[in-house]
Computed example of a mutant assay.
Amino acid sequence: MSSDRRLPRILVDADACPVKDEAMRVADRHGLDVIFVANRFIAVPRVEGVRLQVVSDGPDAADDWIVDEVEAHDIVVTADIPLAARSLEKGAAVLGPTGKPFTTASIGAALATRDLMSHLRETGEITGGPRPFAARDRSRFLQELEHAANRSKRTLAAEAAEA
């Protein structure tokens, strides 16, 4: 891992993440480190800049590790809305695996919708889950991660120039 904090890192909530390869591809193109966080071993390439962080099997262990580690301008990849909210509070950019960015403007509605859907599922009102992951989701993710990487790098470079 590079110690050059003038570059953002990509932290991936890796359990069941369908865009691991895409995250590595964008990280490699931009010279960024990528950390996959999971509560079990997953295969990741043994190359510079790619790391697997295995955490305990607790319900929020991966989320807690990411929040403890993430810094402003890092990029978090997760479908977990509460983790997205916590990461945004620390100044990170956050993307869902479908490429949907979570923002400070949208996270409140996302949390409210999550809570409503959870309540409806508990009462037996909703039996379906999210739509299947599609090729267009992968393409949108690549595009949005590319934008997020460029924004984070520009912002960090501007802050370093001012210091």
Rank of each mutant, 00 (worst) to 15 (best):
M24T: 00
M24H: 00
R25C: 05
V26P: 03
V26R: 04
R29C: 10
R29E: 13
H30P: 05
G31L: 07
G31H: 09
D33I: 03
D33W: 08
V34Y: 01
I35M: 06
F36S: 07
F36D: 05
V37L: 09
V37K: 08
A38Y: 06
A38E: 07
R40C: 11
R40Y: 15
F41S: 12
I42A: 13
I42K: 09
A43I: 03
A43F: 10
V44M: 04
V44K: 00
P45Q: 06
R46C: 00
R46F: 01
E48A: 15
R51G: 00
R51L: 01
R51V: 01
L52P: 07
L52R: 03
Q53I: 00
Q53A: 09
V55W: 06
V55C: 07
S56N: 14
S56K: 14
S56G: 15
D57E: 15
G58T: 07
P59W: 01
P59F: 04
D60M: 02
D60T: 05
D60W: 01
D60H: 09
D60F: 02
A61W: 05
D63K: 13
D63Q: 12
D63T: 13
I66D: 12
D68V: 00
V70L: 11
E71K: 14
H73M: 11
D74W: 01
I75F: 10
I75S: 06
I75M: 05
V76Q: 08
V77R: 01
V77F: 01
A79E: 12
P82F: 11
L83M: 13
L83G: 12
L88D: 06
L88G: 08
K90M: 10
K90A: 08
G91S: 05
A93F: 14
L95D: 03
T98R: 15
T98S: 15
T98C: 11
G99Y: 04
K100T: 14
K100H: 14
K100C: 08
P101C: 05
